[in-house]
Write a protein that binds this DNA or RNA. Structure first.
Lengths: 219, 219
DNA sequence: GCTTATCGGACAGTACAGCTATCCATAACT
DNA sequence: AGTTATGGATAGCTGTACTGTCCGATAAGC
């Protein structure tokens, strides 16, 4: 198939397909002549994945490229591919380490304690680590310590989720599909969890505060 | 205090403060002359909150303005303010309802079943509803049904989190602080939960797959 | 009282992301 | 043979989030 059909089948405009080709999100088609190329179902799949990561997962084009690179490279062992995919999907909050930042130091300690309590084997080099530290620090800086007190609860909930997710990922055969599924699951899972949290909040809020559900029309 | 000091105390440049004033994220200072105004600690707090929502929570300036509008309006009852804050912080995935979209219809059903199973009292008008439907539909469209099978787990985890969060919010006095805390908790909580999920995944992945932690340096 | 820094306000300009449009020589359908 | 589509390159567009510059007015230091 050529771009026209690829576009029709994927719902992505030809112009955007060309853009994704340029940006390396979509591998070039197989050449059938000096200026002619053919695409296959793999391209349709890939295109759908790109749109899912960008539109639903909210990744940037650059982050998407990073994720796909990890998915594609068969050299990389599974657990590392997952880690790398994770790393590229975790937005980096630079923060640039203000040396005497009390809030951040406290947050770092709080997270270290939490991890120790739960017996987690994690490395502070994981970008998620500094993201978490940043959030905790921000929260305490805003003068609210609720979130800090709920940290254990959050960690427990996420451990339960992660355990089942990792187990589900591991018990599969095909590496390519495994990595792909894990990546999509990680990225889309964030969005899904956030949405379910809001629905659960609405439910609990109705229960406790009475009245109608909170989120009528918004804006 | 005037802009210069406000800038120093908040770490936000004067130019950005002026921008936030123009965009209505920061209320104008109290006028002390035809072209002179004074700011107070409330402005410092507000500015910190703006940066937290934008930098850490990843909200756009427009979304931030919506959130703050809900926080500020004392007419709105608490549970509705929370809902509206929620609505504005839930990114709208337009989707524009393709009429015969099988995946979406199935996803809608799956979510309805889930909500019924758990006995949640939620309205499909909640923007989080259509976000969740969109994610589930995308997942099935990508040909993977793991996430769909994990839906119940996700919902359970989020219900546990939400129950404690709502309880924590309700038991406070001051309305303004309550709403503010809830908003910040909702927005920053998303980021924190995502980060903790990744850390938990790393831990579980190390346990199950052996080898080093997955997220060494990334990209 | 005079100088110099700072202020608020308005508006133009910048940087980047993510497309979108146009052009052109070739190739494919009809 | 003529219309339409293709690959490839490059220019342009739209939106977001600032940043820089200019202005006349004011405040602060001497």
């Amino acid at each position: 198939m050529r771009v026209g059909e690829l576009s029709r089948r994927s719902g992505v405009s030809v112009a955007s397909i060309k853009y994704y080709l340029r940006e390396g999100l979509l591998p070039p088609g197989e050449r059938t002549g000096p200026n002619q190329a053919a695409y296959d179902d793999g391209h349709v799949r890939r295109l759908r994945m790109v749109r899912a990561l960008i539109d639903v997962g909210g990744l940037s084009v650059a982050a998407t490229r990073g994720v796909l690179a990890a998915v594609d490279d068969p050299e990389v062992p599974l657990h590392e591919a997952l880690g790398r995919a994770q790393a590229t999907t975790t937005p980096r909050h630079a923060e640039d380490a203000d040396p005497d930042d009390e809030a951040r130091a406290g947050a770092e300690q709080a997270l270290a304690d939490l991890v120790a309590d739960r017996g987690w084997a994690v490395s502070p080099a994981n970008p998620a680590w500094s993201t978490a530290v940043g959030v905790i620090a921000t929260y305490t800086r805003l003068g609210d310590d609720d979130l800090a007190r709920q940290l254990g609860l959050y960690a427990e909930a996420m451990e339960g989720v992660a355990r089942r997710e990792v187990a589900a990922v591991v018990e599969r055969g095909d590496r390519a599909r495994t990595v792909e599924g894990a990546v999509v699951g990680t990225v889309l899972g964030d969005t899904l969890l956030a949405a379910l949290r809001r629905l659960a909040q609405e439910h609990c809020s109705v229960q406790l505060l009475g009245g109608r559900a909170g989120a009528d029309t918004g804006d």
